[in-house]
Design a protein around this nucleic acid. Structure first.
Length: 793
DNA sequence: GATAGCCGGGG
DNA sequence: GTGTACGGCTATC
């Protein structure tokens, strides 16, 4: 007896039953209850390419299978990079059978290659069944032994339900600096959830904090945590650096305590596995999303510590408890412990805010790419493109190419080609700048010129040829990649149209979908040039860049020759021209003329007018918008191992130049700073450089300044451990700079070396800027020599 | 200027 | 688990 149920797909995995893989789909129904269905109808398979004797090779493979691993071998007509091939589809009983037999088959006589032998079983299932996570499914199910077995499955339309999200953060006892999971217990677990729960679990009494629940010990605290996760039945668990820290640490403690911690649906244990150099935590049936790599992927910041991230992205100022001192809050107890609890709760709170900001984008990506939220949250843009391509390949009969291995990869990685065209900027200050850029230039080129591995013709060609290269792209048949990319671009355009006609709420949702499509579309060019890509083709990426150079140069020529506009800069898909306020209508005319000459979907757009710009070198410039906002590219000293005084001086110099166009005033500012440094009229904080000690002092090969400073801390009896941020100044002396680093704790104002701060901090930070406006380093320095001091002060 | 090696977040 | 990151920066030649 079958019946039909509706479910919203959250996650999928498989279990092994009697040697066979059984797919489990974790769903949520319309009432918000989670349930699981099982699918035993899908078997693992991969392909062997048999050259011209498929029948013979098929028999050879079957007779080599003494253990009876192979279920059957079917002969299929497929396409490989658009060309017809005969392939043997080898079906086995269990996913792990594939690695057991593939090497033997690969090396059998008559087998040219094996393909699709490394595609994870659940991902393959989602692709082959044409179903997508975070969408509604209609499932025909049959109940057997209390389990719902899937007999039919179909995608249906429906709104995204409110997913239940829990943000998690732990605090750890760390008397030796870096916590050691074998000795140091977890002292707090904080949870803040989308359904309004705010809780800090701990095992010491905390006064006056109602959200704190005190358990009898670490073990009881962890078990209570699992209980809360099960009761709330969260779809998504988020954290900050939880893949790398919180969950591996919890796992270690769970092992040490000899308990089991059922965090997943179906009471699955927390699992931690390795993913390259990094660990990855899996909570089955839910999505575990670590926001740290996601923030890194989407926002360029100088630091990704949670405090600076939430300040930058959410405008929330939040105190940081010094990691080294954390354990003392626990030891002291009382108000200190209450403070720690508040801090821990706040961490979980802001993590949930970050999730609210980023999860909608990843919900969209999961649906478009068609893989689970858990997996998509860990994919780079290249992987997103690849899984999207794989989903399209299968129903089109396209064989999925292999990842490169060994020499093939090395050859790809070392191959380079010419990228975007960057016009040498007109150095110095420039007034009245209009900026134009091409809308999605690279994706447009791929579609307009049908750039695809299957359409590529090398040498002896004329039609649709990449400028300056021996590569053409056949226009007879649309390529696989342009076809998919065109679909993305068209859907994005449709969504942008829809956005004009809907209310604010709907518009916000659509704008996230639009952004997801943009991210994917813009990743195709990089994908084709990415050495690990299955559909890698250097010639394609190279050709896209060549077409782009042609178009941007063409536009610059139109600006200069037809409109007599001065082009002061341009990079890849943008150009900066001088248009005085009284001639602004030229911008529109220029756009019209340019776009009339552009083929296909390639289109130049107006980006904005700027009052003033300062151009230093290629990719290093600053603009002042009409609203008075400073836009700085490539000049910012974003690293924390610059003294604050150097960063502040640079910023102030840029401000004076852009807002007041007064180089002399800026130069005077620099000389003032230099003078203050010489006369020691600065604070220690102004000149302190901070660098993190990331490992034990002994494991450093080269003695960097912060390592030397850490050594000195240790010599004077201070506790030094990996993870500490070392603050130091550079003192006078003749030894190498590194050896003159002194921990700021021991430093007095008379210790620092003015010449170091002037020559290695202040001047490098501003030198290039001044050179661009014709000032030499010496000119700036002159003011500080004895003879010329009187000249300036 | 190339290239090998290190590093991030978390406590 | 049909698996093994990555991109940016620094030191050093």
């Amino acid at each position: 007896m079958t019946r039909v149920v509706k479910g919203f797909l959250i996650d999928a995995d498989y279990e092994t039953v009697e040697g066979k893989a059984l797919i489990r789909l974790y769903l949520r129904d319309e009432q918000g209850n989670s349930f699981v269905t099982y699918d035993d109808s899908f078997s693992p398979y991969f392909y062997a390419l048999p050259g011209d004797e498929p029948e013979k090779v098929r028999e050879r493979i079957l007779s080599s299978d003494e253990e009876g691993i192979i279920q059957n071998i079917a002969i299929e007509e497929k396409r490989f990079f658009g060309k017809p091939v005969t392939a043997l589809r080898i079906t086995v009983h269990h996913p792990q059978d594939v690695p057991r037999i593939r090497e033997r088959i690969r090396h059998l006589e008559g087998v040219d290659a094996i393909n699709e032998h490394d595609i994870l079983f659940v991902r393959r299932y989602l692709i082959d069944r044409g179903i997508k996570p975070l969408t509604w499914l209609e499932l025909e199910v049959e109940e057997e032994q209390g389990r719902l077995f899937v007999r039919g499955i179909e995608h249906i339309d429906g709104e995204l339900p409110e997913l239940k999200v829990a943000a998690v953060d732990i605090e750890v006892y760390n008397p030796k600096g870096a916590p050691r999971s074998k000795q140091d217990p977890i002292i707090m677990v904080s949870m803040v959830t989308s359904d309004g729960m705010e809780k800090v679990l701990t095992w010491k009494p905390v006064e006056g904090e109602a959200y704190v629940e005190t358990l009898s010990n670490e073990k009881e605290m962890l078990l209570r945590f699992a209980q809360l996760v099960q009761e709330g039945d969260y779809d998504v668990i988020v954290g900050y650096n939880t893949d790398n820290f919180d969950f591996p640490y919890i796992k270690d403690r769970v092992k040490k305590l000899g308990i089991s911690l059922p965090l997943g649906r179906l009471n699955a244990e927390l699992e931690v596995s390795r993913r390259g150099a990094l660990p990855e935590a899996r909570i089955r049936g839910r999505a575990h999303v670590d926001l740290y790599p996601i923030v890194r992927r989407h926002v360029k910041l100088n630091s990704y510590v949670l405090e600076s991230v939430v300040e930058e992205l959410l405008g929330i100022k939040k105190e940081k408890i010094d990691g080294d001192k954390l354990f003392t809050y626990w030891d002291k107890g009382g108000e200190n412990l209450a403070m720690l609890a508040r801090y821990s709760l706040e961490d979980a709170r802001v993590t949930l805010f970050l999730a609210e900001k980023f999860l909608p984008l990843y919900y969209e990506l999961a649906v478009i790419v068609g893989q689970s939220l858990n997996d998509v949250a860990r994919m780079t843009s290249g992987q997103l493109v690849e899984w999207l391509l794989m989903r399209f390949a299968t129903p089109r009969g396209e064989l999925i190419p292999n990842h490169p291995a060994g020499e093939e990869y090395a050859a790809r990685a070392s191959a380079s080609y010419v990228g975007g065209y960057v016009r040498e900027p007109k150095r110095g200050l420039v007034e009245n700048i209009a900026v134009f850029d091409f809308r999605s230039l690279y994706p447009s080129i791929i579609v307009s010129h049908n750039i695809d591995p299957s359409t590529l013709i090398i040498g002896n060609c004329e039609e649709n040829r990449a400028p300056g290269l021996d590569y053409c792209f056949s226009l007879d048949k649309e390529g696989f990649i342009p076809e998919i990319l065109k679909g993305l671009i068209q859907r994005r355009a449709e969504i942008k149209q829809q956005m004009k006609q809907v209310d604010e709420d709907k518009r916000r949702m659509l704008s996230v979908a639009e952004k997801a499509l943009k991210i994917l579309a813009n990743s195709f060019y990089g994908y084709m040039g990415y050495p690990r890509a299955r559909w890698y083709r250097r010639e394609c990426a190279e050709s896209v860049a060549a077409f782009a150079r042609m178009y941007i140069k063409q536009v610059m020529r139109i600006a200069e020759e037809d409109f007599k506009l001065e082009v002061v800069y341009g990079d890849t898909d943008s150009l900066f021209v001088v248009i005085p306020p009284e001639k602004r209508e030229l911008a529109r005319e220029f756009l019209r003329k340019v776009n009339a000459s552009m083929p296909g979907m390639i289109e130049l757009e107006f980006e904005g007018f700027y009052k003033r710009g300062l151009f230093v070198t290629k990719k290093r410039y600053a603009l002042l918008s009409e609203e008075g906002k400073m836009v700085v590219k490539g000049l910012e000293f974003v690293r924390r191992d610059w003294a604050p005084i150097a960063r502040e001086t640079q910023r102030e110099v840029l401000r004076i130049l852009l807002e007041e166009a007064n180089p002399e005033k800026a130069a005077k500012l620099v000389r003032d700073v230099i003078k203050r440094i010489r006369e020691r009229r600065v604070t220690l904080e102004d000149i302190t450089i901070y660098t993190q000690l990331t490992k034990r002092i002994k494991s450093y090969k080269s003695l960097e300044p912060h390592v030397v400073a850490a050594q000195k801390l240790k010599e004077r009896g201070r506790e030094v451990a990996p993870g500490m941020i070392i603050g130091y100044i550079i003192t006078r002396g003749t030894k190498a700079i590194s050896h003159r680093a002194l921990p700021v704790e021991f430093a007095k104002l008379e210790d620092y070396d003015p010449d170091y701060y002037i020559d290695n901090q202040i001047l490098p930070a501003i030198q290039r800027i001044f050179e661009a406006i014709g000032y030499t380093r010496d000119y700036l320095r002159e003011g500080i020599t004895q003879t010329s001091l009187s000249k300036w002060f």
